[in-house]
Design a binder for these strands. Structure first.
Lengths: 210, 210
DNA sequence: GTTGCATAGTAACAAATGTTACATAGCAAA
DNA sequence: TTTGCTATGTAACATTTGTTACTATGCAAC
């Protein structure tokens, strides 16, 4: 564990802090598609991503859902940070998008380190910053882009996150993440295929050039 | 100044910090409609709201715009906090919605106090938290609500912020904030008037019951 | 192979939103 | 009062997105 930790966070944190993380954190290794946090669930610890990727989804009461953003190595969940104050119930759902390694930090430590380590404080601030910027980007997409542009952006982002030019998703899954219907996605994907930007297969989409 | 400061932040900050804020902050009193921050502008100080309200807008390159949220007394601008790291260019536009009093804090101090005062640290964390939650609410609105529901929510929020059941905006202004067209807003407002929920006048909208 | 199920394709239509164009109304300055 | 400008009302139409319903296809279990 200490080696993984050093690789991902060694340049960010001082040795004493790395030591504490190693001591108090819990190493976790989850497969793809593992549900890490559910909406309304209470949060007891915050995740530090070592490798893999996590998909953060927003759901509302009527079963509507929407992809907010992805977390990658070196990220942490700002929504979790946020839960250390006030309400501790999660507003989001977190699902691993890839096999993922992470370290869970008890929230008391998060509080303690904030006073103790400047590098930790900066890390937390920077995480908030990054998450706010991702939220802004999400807002830009849903407010300013048409569905075909959002789909294109989705395919690009997904390919980048998984580091694979084939995207293993069904049209229905994409529809859920973009909060639209399967028929709409099929329609737009077919248009992209006709433009020879992608190649459609059962259960996957091969990107030719986006 | 010190009295205003105590009224708004006295319960939040210890005396020593209040003292420093008083010493290093610059008191600012702006009229309604004053542009505090423009997109792309560099940020040199962060605002602490004493009274009034500030509208935070997102713009994109094509002249599209969208209301993100309002700041009120006791709030600060997380987007500004965020600018103390990395890029210091503003991603948003801030305009006073009411006559507004605020204290501008030089960003070096913000950094310094973060290490020095636990109450300041908590304030900053809580601000980030609140802003993330507002962004989530904005995303919910644009992703899950139809335009008529968004308009209703807009009227309610605006009335609450200004503490006035008459909203002094033109249809065009509302259209900009909701990122749609004037005709669409006129249409929906007229529908609300027919339902006797509002009364339309030139340059203002009187809320009857929402 | 045949069956069954999940996935994808597509047409036809419905609803929501956006656009254009023009008419009307309110208000203030000349 | 007339003029001019801004704001609002409204029709007609275009586009985008969503829905329903049905077909076709791929794949695996039998």
């Amino acid at each position: 564990m200490i080696q993984d930790l050093k690789n991902s966070y060694g340049s960010l944190f001082e040795d004493a802090l790395l030591e504490e993380i190693n001591q108090f954190g819990t190493y976790k290794d989850v497969p793809e598609g593992y549900k890490l946090i559910e909406i309304g669930q209470y949060i007891k610890s915050m995740p530090l991503l070592i490798s893999g990727a996590i998909k953060i989804m927003r759901d509302d009461d009527d079963g509507d859902e929407l992809l907010l953003y992805f977390l990658e190595s070196g990220d942490t969940c700002a929504m979790t940070l946020t839960c250390c104050l006030g309400t501790t119930k999660s507003e989001i759902r977190a699902i691993s998008e890839l096999p993922t390694k992470l370290i869970m930090i008890p929230i008391e430590k998060m509080e303690e380190w904030t006073g103790k380590y400047k590098s930790w404080r900066n890390f937390v601030f920077e995480s908030y910053h990054n998450r706010l910027m991702e939220m802004l980007e999400t807002i830009d997409s849903i407010a300013f882009l048409k569905m075909d542009e959002r789909l294109l952006k989705y395919l690009r982002d997904k390919s980048k996150i998984t580091n694979d030019d084939t995207i293993y998703s069904t049209h229905q899954e994409i529809a859920y993440e973009l909060h639209t219907s399967r028929v709409v996605i099929s329609r737009l994907l077919k248009k992209l295929e006709n433009q020879e930007k992608i190649k459609l297969n059962r259960n996957n989409i091969k990107i030719i050039s986006l």
